[in-house]
Protein backbone atom coordinates (compact mmCIF):
# COMPACT_ATOMS: atom_id res chain seq x y z
CA UNK A 1 0.00 0.00 0.00
CA UNK A 2 2.71 2.37 0.84
CA UNK A 3 3.68 2.13 -2.78
CA UNK A 4 0.85 4.45 -3.81
CA UNK A 5 1.24 6.90 -1.02
CA UNK A 6 4.68 7.73 -2.06
CA UNK A 7 4.81 11.41 -2.70
CA UNK A 8 6.76 12.80 -5.55
CA UNK A 9 8.28 16.22 -5.49
CA UNK A 10 5.71 18.75 -4.28
CA UNK A 11 6.70 21.64 -6.53
CA UNK A 12 4.52 22.10 -9.63
CA UNK A 13 6.51 22.50 -12.78
CA UNK A 14 5.96 26.03 -14.12
CA UNK A 15 4.50 26.13 -17.61
CA UNK A 16 6.58 28.32 -19.77
CA UNK A 17 4.57 31.21 -21.15
CA UNK A 18 7.38 32.45 -23.29
CA UNK A 19 5.80 31.10 -26.48
CA UNK A 20 2.41 32.67 -25.77
CA UNK A 21 3.32 35.98 -27.42
CA UNK A 22 4.37 34.08 -30.51
CA UNK A 23 1.01 32.38 -30.71
CA UNK A 24 -0.82 35.67 -30.27
CA UNK A 25 1.39 37.35 -32.84
CA UNK A 26 0.59 34.57 -35.25
CA UNK A 27 -3.12 35.25 -34.75
CA UNK A 28 -2.48 38.95 -35.17
CA UNK A 29 -0.65 38.46 -38.44
CA UNK A 30 -3.35 36.13 -39.64
CA UNK A 31 -5.99 38.80 -39.10
CA UNK A 32 -3.83 41.52 -40.58
CA UNK A 33 -3.28 39.52 -43.73
CA UNK A 34 -6.81 38.22 -44.11
CA UNK A 35 -8.73 41.43 -43.63
CA UNK A 36 -9.05 43.25 -46.90
CA UNK A 37 -9.30 46.97 -46.65
CA UNK A 38 -11.45 48.78 -49.14
CA UNK A 39 -9.38 48.59 -52.26
CA UNK A 40 -10.54 51.67 -54.08
CA UNK A 41 -10.87 55.10 -52.64
CA UNK A 42 -14.28 56.60 -53.20
CA UNK A 43 -14.21 59.89 -54.97
CA UNK A 44 -17.97 60.21 -55.04
CA UNK A 45 -20.56 60.70 -52.38
CA UNK A 46 -22.45 57.43 -52.37
CA UNK A 47 -25.18 56.77 -49.86
CA UNK A 48 -27.10 53.75 -51.04
CA UNK A 49 -30.86 53.74 -50.40
CA UNK A 50 -32.61 51.45 -47.98
CA UNK A 51 -34.55 48.41 -49.02
CA UNK A 52 -35.95 45.21 -47.56
CA UNK A 53 -35.66 42.56 -50.26
CA UNK A 54 -31.94 42.05 -50.11
CA UNK A 55 -29.71 39.23 -51.18
CA UNK A 56 -26.18 38.83 -49.98
CA UNK A 57 -23.38 38.77 -52.50
CA UNK A 58 -21.55 35.55 -51.95
CA UNK A 59 -18.22 35.32 -53.63
CA UNK A 60 -16.40 38.61 -53.51
CA UNK A 61 -14.01 37.73 -56.28
CA UNK A 62 -16.94 37.41 -58.67
CA UNK A 63 -18.20 40.93 -58.04
CA UNK A 64 -17.18 44.13 -59.73
CA UNK A 65 -18.26 47.45 -58.38
CA UNK A 66 -19.57 50.44 -60.25
CA UNK A 67 -20.07 53.60 -58.28
CA UNK A 68 -22.39 56.39 -59.34
CA UNK A 69 -22.78 59.61 -57.44
CA UNK A 70 -21.83 63.24 -57.26
CA UNK A 71 -18.10 63.99 -56.87
CA UNK A 72 -16.90 64.80 -53.38
CA UNK A 73 -16.32 68.45 -52.60
CA UNK A 74 -12.56 68.32 -53.16
CA UNK A 75 -13.04 67.01 -56.67
CA UNK A 76 -15.87 69.34 -57.62
CA UNK A 77 -13.64 72.08 -59.01
CA UNK A 78 -12.20 69.60 -61.44
CA UNK A 79 -15.11 67.32 -62.21
CA UNK A 80 -18.17 69.46 -61.50
CA UNK A 81 -21.21 68.47 -59.51
CA UNK A 82 -23.09 66.37 -62.03
CA UNK A 83 -23.35 62.66 -61.19
CA UNK A 84 -20.37 60.67 -62.39
CA UNK A 85 -19.35 57.09 -62.74
CA UNK A 86 -16.37 55.69 -60.90
CA UNK A 87 -14.74 52.43 -61.92
CA UNK A 88 -11.94 51.11 -59.77
CA UNK A 89 -10.41 54.26 -58.34
CA UNK A 90 -10.85 56.72 -61.17
CA UNK A 91 -13.58 58.80 -62.72
CA UNK A 92 -14.81 57.13 -65.87
CA UNK A 93 -17.32 57.46 -68.62
CA UNK A 94 -19.89 54.99 -69.82
CA UNK A 95 -17.58 53.91 -72.62
CA UNK A 96 -14.97 52.63 -70.16
CA UNK A 97 -17.35 49.98 -68.85
CA UNK A 98 -16.59 47.19 -71.38
CA UNK A 99 -12.83 47.41 -70.71
CA UNK A 100 -13.44 47.50 -66.98
CA UNK A 101 -15.62 44.38 -67.16
CA UNK A 102 -13.04 42.63 -69.33
CA UNK A 103 -10.24 43.47 -66.92
CA UNK A 104 -12.20 41.95 -64.10
CA UNK A 105 -13.23 38.95 -66.14
CA UNK A 106 -9.73 37.76 -66.96
CA UNK A 107 -8.97 37.47 -63.25
CA UNK A 108 -11.88 35.08 -62.74
CA UNK A 109 -11.53 31.36 -63.46
CA UNK A 110 -13.31 30.43 -66.65
CA UNK A 111 -15.88 28.13 -65.10
CA UNK A 112 -17.11 30.87 -62.82
CA UNK A 113 -17.41 33.62 -65.41
CA UNK A 114 -21.11 33.17 -65.92
CA UNK A 115 -21.70 34.06 -62.30
CA UNK A 116 -19.98 37.43 -62.38
CA UNK A 117 -22.15 40.08 -60.78
CA UNK A 118 -21.95 43.81 -61.21
CA UNK A 119 -22.78 45.64 -58.05
CA UNK A 120 -24.12 49.12 -58.68
CA UNK A 121 -23.46 51.35 -55.74
CA UNK A 122 -25.59 54.32 -56.55
CA UNK A 123 -26.34 57.36 -54.47
CA UNK A 124 -30.02 57.73 -53.64
CA UNK A 125 -30.17 61.32 -54.89
CA UNK A 126 -28.90 60.59 -58.38
CA UNK A 127 -31.43 60.72 -61.20
CA UNK A 128 -32.11 57.66 -63.31
CA UNK A 129 -30.57 59.06 -66.49
CA UNK A 130 -26.99 58.01 -65.81
CA UNK A 131 -28.10 54.80 -64.12
CA UNK A 132 -30.07 53.92 -67.22
CA UNK A 133 -27.09 54.61 -69.45
CA UNK A 134 -24.93 52.35 -67.32
CA UNK A 135 -27.56 49.63 -67.37
CA UNK A 136 -27.86 49.82 -71.14
CA UNK A 137 -24.08 49.59 -71.50
CA UNK A 138 -23.99 46.59 -69.18
CA UNK A 139 -26.68 44.90 -71.24
CA UNK A 140 -24.79 45.62 -74.42
CA UNK A 141 -21.64 44.17 -72.87
CA UNK A 142 -23.47 41.01 -71.91
CA UNK A 143 -23.19 41.61 -68.19
CA UNK A 144 -26.72 40.78 -67.12
CA UNK A 145 -26.50 39.90 -63.44
CA UNK A 146 -26.73 43.16 -61.59
CA UNK A 147 -27.03 43.98 -57.94
CA UNK A 148 -28.50 47.28 -56.82
CA UNK A 149 -26.57 47.76 -53.63
CA UNK A 150 -28.77 48.85 -50.74
CA UNK A 151 -28.82 48.96 -46.99
CA UNK A 152 -31.09 46.85 -44.87
CA UNK A 153 -34.11 48.84 -43.80
CA UNK A 154 -35.06 48.41 -40.18
CA UNK A 155 -38.44 46.72 -39.88
CA UNK A 156 -41.15 48.87 -38.38
Amino acid sequence: MSKFKKKRGKAKPAISTASLPDIIFMLLFFFMVVTVLRDSELKLKVTTPQATELTKLEEKSLVNYLYIGRPLEKYQSEYGTAPRLQLGDKFSTINDIPIFLEQHKIKVPENKRTRITSSLKVDGDVTMGIVQDVKTKLRKSGQLIVNYSAKQKAEE
Binding site: T48, A51, E53, L54, T55, K56, L57, K60, V63, T117, S119, L120, K135, L138, R139, Q143, L144, I145, V146, N147, Y148, S149, A150, K151, Q152
Partner: peptide, 8 residues
Protein backbone atom coordinates in the same frame (compact mmCIF):
# COMPACT_ATOMS: atom_id res chain seq x y z
CA UNK B 1 -22.42 44.00 -49.73
CA UNK B 2 -26.11 43.43 -49.96
CA UNK B 3 -28.57 44.51 -52.54
CA UNK B 4 -31.45 43.79 -54.82
CA UNK B 5 -30.47 41.21 -57.37
CA UNK B 6 -31.74 41.80 -60.86
CA UNK B 7 -31.28 39.90 -64.09
CA UNK B 8 -31.24 42.34 -66.95
Amino acid sequence: DKGIRVAL
